[in-house]
Each structure stands twice: as C-alpha cells, then as structure tokens.
Write a protein that binds this DNA or RNA. Structure first.
Lengths: 209, 209
DNA sequence: GCCATAAGTTATTACTCAATAACTTTCGCC
DNA sequence: GGCGAAAGTTATTGAGTAATAACTTATGGC
C-alpha cells in the first residue's frame, strides 16, 4: 500500500549520478559535516540506507561530488576556449566562469572544498582537492597559453568573485566598482538568485547537463 | 579529590576571551558543524556545560569567533598603515596580510565564514559576515585612498593567496609564479606550518594578542 | 511464465552532540 | 571568619546520524 509511482526505478549507475548531483548541491550549502546522508537521500528520492549501497560511505559520496565540481568547471573551460588562443581564450573562459557561477551551488561547493581541504588532516582529501585545483590551473594555462601574470590575474579575479557572490554583496557596492559590466551583471544575477530563497530545493536534479 | 591545580580560575570575562580564541581556532578547522562544543571546552580547560554559561548557545560563540577574525585583520591593517598613504599604505597592508596568514587559523576562519554565510539561509549570519567584509574593504580604502582598480587587485590577490595557502600548494608550483619573493616566502611558510601537523593543538591559547 | 538478479525497503544500533538542571567549590569582602 | 556571589562541576536528556543487517519487490532474459 506504499505510494506506487514515487520513483520509477533506475539502474544503479543512473541513480548514482543523480545522487552525486544532489550531494554536490547539499554539500555546497552545508559542507561535509553540515549535511546528513538522510537529507541527500530524501532529495534523491531513495531511502537513506540505500545510499550506502551506492557508495561505501559518506566520504566517498563527498569525493564524487568534489570531482563533479571540478569536472564541470574544467569542461566548461575546454568548451568555450575551443578554437581560441591567447587572451581571447582567457577572456572567453572568464566570461564563462561568470556565467557558470550563476549556478550558486558550483561556486559554494568550490569554496567548501578549499576550506575542507585546508582544515582537514586527512592527507588523502587534501591531496585530492589540491590536484583538482592545480589541474584546473594547468588546463587554463594550456588552453590559453597565457603568462604567469595573466593566469594570476585570472584566478585572483575568480576567487574574489567567489567571495562577493557567496556573501551576496550587491552590485552597486564599491567592491564591484572595478568590474566590467558583463561580469558584474552575471555575478549579480547569482547574488539575486541567492537572495530568492525559501527554495523548493528539488528543481533541477533530474535535468542532465 | 579532583586534580587541584588544573586551571587556576579566571573571571568570566577572561575565560570568555580565551574561549573565543580557542573557538576561532577550532571553527577554522572544522567549520560550524564540524566543531563540537565539547572539543572547544576541552581546549579551554573547562567543562562543556560551562561554555553555555559563558555563551547562550553555540551560534553566539561562533559569532564571537567571527568578530575576532575580522577585528584582528582590520586592526593589523590600521597598525601597519599608520603614517603611510596611497600605494605605500597598500603595500604595507599587503605585506602585513602575507604575514598575518602565517597564522593559518585566521586564514581558514575567514574562508569558513565566507562559505558559511554563502550556504546559510539565516539572514542574520549572512548580513553579519557581509558587513565584516565590506567593513574590511572600507577600512583599506580609507587607509590607502586607493582607486577601485587598486583595491580590486589588492583583495583579488588576497583571496587567491587564501586558496593557495589553504590547499598547501608548494612554493615552487606555477601557481605562485607571478608572486614577488616576499609574499611567496611568507605564504609558503604558512603552507609549511600547515604540513607540520600532528599538532599538539594547545600551544598558544593563553598568549593574548 | 518463471526465476535469478538487481533495486529498493524497514528496523535497528551504537554514538555524538547541544543544551538544561541541579549541585559544589572557591574567592573577596565586611 | 563567615557569607554571598561568582566560577565551575557532574549527571542527564532528547534529538540526530552514519552505517549494518535482514528482508521485499520489481525486471528482463530465456
């Protein structure tokens, strides 16, 4: 007599992919410790113990979410830099990044990873995230062929945007004064989306890329 | 028959100050959810329930730690910029920041605050951290009289350093290539200190400033 | 149409953690 | 020297929480 058509059964792999997307979204908000497997399972539409058949433990789920986070970013860079070189490529990636973090979850998960790695004494996690970061740097360097100074500026800018968007600093604040209109517009959109909460939470997880 | 000379009794205010320092250190590592009041109390040298006589709840303790984090940074800026103007002041603050984050706890607590605020739907916390940030920005602007572009560069740089140090990216990595020797040296020192763990943890909490 | 396998569940455990209540010890001051 | 307030403790509770075990239900290939 259980509700019949709740979730129409998926292959384990498919379910795992959904779980990783949901996990990223939840870990982004609450971090590793602030997120319960229960909360993730509920949004996946599955019982909590079943998560542990899909993943050996919570940490593995977190790691998978971390990988998704890096993969999405890197893949976006590769896509938008296609056919471009030098500063043009770099600019395209910069714009793409601004648009990418309109999805606030990706942004927050990134920051969550940095701080989790920074505070962890599990050398495994630290190394994993560090490699994700340096890999991202290397990708941008290869795609653009930019100099150290240009790369430095690129990533510096990115990290500042992260903080401003995370904190929801409004677009007319002086912190945004030096940004070009395009980045500011995209980033402010992310801020606005952050403000519009009371979020029903379960909107996008079935929509693939 | 309890061990007699464990902790020589302090005024509540004094004990509170110690607790805030310890709390910052612990929250920096584990974040809000990853840190137990038990762990804090132990390092303070006090029973866990007594913490709740010093602070109404865990959140208040976190807020106090957040304030300490911002205060330390801002005060350092004010101190080193004394008598300087324009780019000189900005440079002095930049150097000071590099040295400041040799104390890894301050750095991690900062990042912890940004991500906590970003993921929280408690508008109270969000506003508090955002004001801390914009206050810091305003302080640097007033002390240096720098342009938007200069301020942007200053804070961008700072946020990148945060991530590199948090992740423990080694000084010979290309990510550091565009940094001047001084910043790199200071920051790398912070990285090294991060690597030297198995930390006895209870070293510095009685030392005041 | 059946049955092995894969997808999924309920029940439960052993622990951790914030917070409260009620009690005890020490200090400073008259 | 004693008493009142301030500093501090032990005991406890009630609500989560990651993970395990044992059981149930659907599906697809033959």
């Amino acid at each position: 007599m259980a509700m019949a058509h709740s979730t129409p059964r998926m292959s384990a792999d498919e379910r795992r992919r959904v779980a990783v997307r949901v996990a990223m979204s939840e870990f982004a908000k609450g971090g590793y410790y602030g997120t319960s497997t229960e909360a993730i399972a509920r949004r996946v539409g599955v019982s909590q113990p079943y998560l542990f058949r899909l993943f050996p433990n919570k940490r593995a789920l977190f790691k998978a979410a971390a990988e998704l986070c890096f993969t999405r970013t890197t893949e976006t860079f590769v896509r938008v830099a296609d056919g471009l070189y030098g500063e043009e490529a770099l600019e395209a990636m910069g714009q793409a990044y601004s648009e990418l973090i309109v999805d606030r979850e990706l942004l927050l998960m990134q920051m969550q990873l940095y701080v989790t790695a920074g505070g962890s004494d599990d050398e495994d996690v630290v190394a994993y995230v560090r490699e994700g970061w340096t890999g991202m740097w290397e990708t941008v360097r290869e795609l653009s062929g930019a100099s150290s100074e240009e790369l430095d500026e690129f990533f510096s800018r990115g990290m500042l945007i992260n903080v401003l968007v995370a904190l929801g600093v409004p677009g007319d604040n002086q912190c945004w004064a030096a940004f070009d209109e395009y980045s500011k517009a995209a980033a402010t959109q992310a801020v606005a989306r952050g403000a519009a909460d009371g979020l029903p939470d379960g909107a996008a997880e079935t929509g693939s890329p």
